[in-house]
């Protein structure tokens, strides 16, 4: 066409160019997300550290000190704190991603109608935005564990896999919920409530050992509980119910594939409105 940069056009047409395009856009959108999330606030990005620390402090004072919950089988000075931290390292990024992700498509409804772009980016940005909290959570957990005299276990090698499992599972669920909310706005209100219930159905503020034994297998029906149990096992050596890792694998496959499938099958509704 005689225009400068037509080599770029050619690369956009091949499928790998499409993935590259989405990758560039996702990275930029992440940058913007972090820049604008705390725009106009004094502490700025420091809030990303303050918020999880504040949650941790509240739960620790309430459950660890006032109610004096103890973790059987964990012989460390601050066993409950570490247990709580392991749970929050999983829970906080999960709830952050879901909370932001649910409304992501609806918020950009008009934009999606006017600008051709891969819509999967929006839930992906919500999940990406939770990675910072996740990194902070895991860093605190590992550093504090070592500081409290926990041994460096071989099972720590599982952590990258568990993190990957969490990202895939969360992304799948965010894809599903964001699209469902786009189609039926009831979903957003429901999710707000469901997340609260979900938190108490997950062994974060209480150890599973405090729950009667016969209920333990029920927890495998909760994907986040599977993750929390696996992380507690990997980092702190707390026993997990048999089959937790298999249940987690199943959840990753179900939510990952299911989310993608549902999103794809409903995607046509995005640009349309009458």
């Amino acid at each position: 066409m005689g225009l400068s940069g037509s080599d770029l056009t050619a690369s956009q047409r091949v499928p790998s160019g499409r993935a590259q395009h989405a990758w560039v856009l996702w990275r930029y959108w992440m940058l913007r997300e972090f820049k604008t999330r705390y725009a106009g606030s004094v502490l700025g990005l420091a809030w990303a550290v303050v918020q999880p620390l504040a949650s941790l402090a509240i739960f620790y004072v309430l459950f660890g000190m006032v109610l004096a919950v103890r973790v059987p089988g964990l012989d460390l000075a601050n066993g409950y704190l570490l247990h709580l931290l392991a749970g929050l390292a999983v829970w906080l990024p999960f709830t952050d991603a879901i909370g932001r992700g649910v409304g992501s498509l609806a918020a950009y409804e008009d934009f999606l109608r006017k600008q051709p772009m891969p819509a999967e980016i929006l839930p992906a940005v919500a999940v990406g935005g939770s990675l910072l909290v996740m990194a902070i959570g895991y860093a605190l957990l590992l550093v504090l564990s070592l500081a409290q005299g926990a041994p460096l276990r071989a099972s720590w090698a599982w952590l990258p896999l568990l993190v990957l499992a969490q990202v895939v599972l969360t992304f799948g669920l965010t894809l599903f919920l964001s699209m469902a909310h786009f189609l039926w706005r009831d979903v957003g209100s429901f999710v707000t409530f469901a997340l609260q219930l979900w938190f108490y159905l997950t062994p974060v503020v209480y150890p599973l050992a405090q729950v009667p034994e016969r209920f333990h297998t029920w927890y495998l029906l909760n994907p986040v509980a599977c993750l929390v149990l696996a992380v507690e096992w990997a980092v702190l050596g707390i026993a997990m119910p048999g089959g937790t890792l298999w249940a987690l694998l199943a959840w990753v496959l179900v939510l990952g594939c299911g989310g993608v499938w549902f999103f794809r099958s409903m995607k046509a509704a995005l640009g349309e409105a009458l």
Partner: peptide, 14 residues
């Protein structure tokens, strides 16, 4: 070729 669509201006601005 490269496509630019002016369907609505500034829709994606933050």
């Amino acid at each position: 070729g490269r496509v630019a669509a002016l369907l609505e201006l500034g829709a994606g601005f933050h």
